[in-house]
């Protein structure tokens, strides 16, 4: 279905329908950004005004960044998502390689276990995992935010599927060249798997940057808040009194991912599509 195959009327109709829906979809984003520039009195006024009358951008963003440690929240978000992703690669890539390319007893049982675990939703394990961290005294730590996600059966599955397509000859050649199996994982499989790894990385970072459920449960200390917790906390703190700064805080918390998405749209959509279809 490529090319201009619609008549002029159908073409206009397509734009009318798509544009209408697009306006509804993009409205919250536009309104959020616009209101983050407005004064409180203008926000509360009865008349609808799209463009701010008096600009309060500096005040609102300053408030968002200073009334709560918003930068700290962003930093926490970066730390948690990146460490989760790095550990996921470290743990799951070798396992995926073993499943795809090594012959050992118990391989099919292990694969079955991975496939079974794919069905488990994250929420289902929350209570025992929470109790475990409670008993271990690890609640309210970075560890509690990161450790449960270091294992990604989905990552194992996805990378295994990719590794299956890597020719056996390449691995045998590396063995003849004198590489160890661990060397093969990091020096041959990892570089060839970059496209799949990018897709998985996007999936992982988006999921954990936006995660609210688990951080909400295990973290009480403000110093460990991730951006979603931070915005929710900001709202509770300032409810009804300062919408401008609240919209500024919301804008700040979604900005990193949305900007990354707009810059690398195709990669993001491919990554989410690939992972969406396999998940």
């Amino acid at each position: 279905m490529t090319g201009n195959r619609l008549g002029p009327f159908a073409r206009i109709l397509r734009h009318v329908v798509l544009m209408t829906l697009a306006v509804v979809i993009v409205a919250p984003f536009v309104w959020m950004v616009l209101c983050s520039f407005k004064t409180q009195s203008e926000i509360l006024s009865a008349e609808i005004r799209i463009i701010p009358h008096t600009w309060a951008a500096v005040e609102n963003y300053t408030a968002a960044l200073t009334r709560v440690p918003m930068l700290r929240f962003l930093l926490n978000g970066v730390i948690v998502t990146l460490v989760i992703f790095l550990l996921q690669v470290l743990v799951n890539l070798p396992a995926a390689y073993a499943l795809a390319k090594l012959r050992f007893r118990g391989r099919s049982a292990f694969l079955g276990l991975v496939l079974l675990c794919l069905l488990i939703p994250v929420h289902a394990t929350a209570i025992p995992t929470y109790i475990m961290f409670y008993k271990a005294g690890l609640l309210n730590t970075y560890a509690s935010l990161i450790l449960p996600f270091t294992i990604s059966v989905f990552g194992i599955f996805l990378m295994r599927q990719f590794f299956m397509t890597v020719p056996d000859d390449l691995i045998d050649a590396a063995r003849v060249d004198g590489m160890s199996e661990i060397g093969i994982v990091w020096r041959v499989m990892l570089p060839t798997a970059v496209p799949a790894l990018v897709a998985f990385g996007i999936f992982s970072v988006v999921a954990h940057w936006n995660d609210y459920f688990w951080p909400l449960i295990v973290v009480a200390d403000q110093a460990l808040y991730t951006p979603p917790l931070g915005v929710a906390f900001f709202r509770l703190n300032d409810q009804g009194t300062s919408y401008g700064p609240l919209m500024a805080a919301a804008t700040i918390s979604i900005a990193p991912l949305v900007i990354a998405f707009l810059l690398a749209q195709r990669r993001f959509i491919e990554g989410i599509t690939l992972t969406g279809m396999k998940a």
Partner: peptide
């Protein structure tokens, strides 16, 4: 269109809920 329609998937749901 594709970018606009996909935007809510990327954006933090908590922040957008508040909006």
């Amino acid at each position: 269109y594709r970018a606009i329609y996909f935007l809510p998937v990327m954006a933090t749901l908590i922040a957008m809920s508040i909006v």
